[in-house]
Write a protein that binds this DNA or RNA. Structure first.
Lengths: 208, 208
DNA sequence: TGGTCTCTCCGCCTTTTGGCTGATGCTGCT
DNA sequence: AGCAGCATCAGCCAAAAGGCGGAGAGACCA
């Protein structure tokens, strides 16, 4: 039995100590360090070279989890990165996998599920919670409903409450183009109005 | 030194065990039970009569934290109830205090802050995290920005993505009245458009 | 080469929203 | 009695958003 060294990254102390206590019940896990922010995580990975990084996405201040994952990947570190977060937002899942995460777990996952995910991650297996997986499958099944990068960008700005004119200025495109994109977004989201699009977008993305 | 019995209520196992580990470092705390849902919490309070109930607001399924607090209060139980949650949403704070919570802590609070809050709660003191307190003060200082019940009702429906016409039909008022209410809501929220109102409303309410 | 996506842009027309002013009835407080 | 706040409604007008059809440029892939 090989020992698996783990770095925990979460801005909430209670979550870190809870996870640490949980992993402590397994003989093959060794939590070698904890970080409360993305910046801290980068430094600790350097010094400890853990086999697995378990990372929350929503970090209170500074670098968020996605960015931390991206930077870890760029430094060609060989850590397996597991996302461990509260919400199963479509955008977060895609972005995390895109950034190089090996797996995606929800915080309400059963202990055994968490253990299995970590053990799998070091072996190169990617593991995700059932709700997360089903979301991804649905996206694969309905490619029509997947926003293009540009559309996603627009939608994101839309949830800031910008007008068409402002959207155009911000993205350096004409208002006509903005309207075209919006029409496509509405169709894909299955809504008829900007308001409904904002509502579903914000709710869907898990927020904050 | 008296021992303070505590019931933890949170749907996330890691949070519960983290909090338990944290409270375990203090000699005067005794976590007598844990619940993963509001329903479970009600039963456990019956059997254990803890001095303090530490409760998360966002429970995955079933009864949410606010409702659990309300029901505990109705059963004239003498427990001090502490809200321990991730987001400092205006609405949640108000509703929790209204339902009978003694304090409102954020999950990123420092350990000492958590300890102090629990010890204070049994003595009838109400404690809240600094960001939470400042939100409440701001509401007291700027009563102009507090929505009337009717306005809040409208805003809530607004975040469903309804049009003015639909709002009117739903509330049995004319479209003219809807517009009047909306104008007031925009002014109080400090926004100019429906979109921005929806965005700030949903974000402010903490969501999920 | 041809087909498909994506992003970009146009015009025209209808509907929706928002700003402004003003007004009524009710309630509660002083 | 008088005043303030709330909820209700109206009309008018300008601005914003949305629906419809069409279209060109570049990327990518079979």
């Amino acid at each position: 039995m090989t020992t698996i060294t783990v770095l925990l990254v979460d801005d909430h102390l209670v979550v870190r100590s809870g996870l640490k206590a949980l992993l402590g019940t397994q003989p093959d896990f060794d939590v070698v360090a904890e970080a409360a922010s993305g910046e801290e995580a980068l430094g600790l990975v350097e010094h400890h070279s853990p086999a697995v990084v378990v990372m929350d996405l929503a970090m209170g201040a500074g670098m968020d989890g996605i960015e931390a994952i991206r930077q870890l990947r760029q430094r060609n570190s060989r850590q397996a990165i597991l996302v461990f977060t509260t919400y199963d937002s479509d955008a977060d899942i895609v972005r995390a996998v895109d950034a190089g995460a090996m797996g995606y777990l929800l915080k309400d996952a059963a202990p055994d599920e968490i253990f299995a995910a970590i053990r799998g991650a070091v072996q190169g297996k990617s593991v995700m919670s059932a709700p997360v997986a089903s979301r991804l499958f649905q996206q694969l099944r309905n490619p029509d409903e997947v926003l293009t990068p540009r559309e996603a960008e627009l939608l994101s700005l839309l949830t800031e409450g910008l007008s068409n004119r402002e959207l155009g200025q911000r993205l350096f495109i004409s208002e006509a183009t903005v309207k075209t994109h919006l029409a496509h977004i509405y169709a894909k989201l299955g809504v008829e109005t900007r308001s409904a699009a904002i509502a579903t977008a914000i709710r869907r993305e898990g927020m904050r």
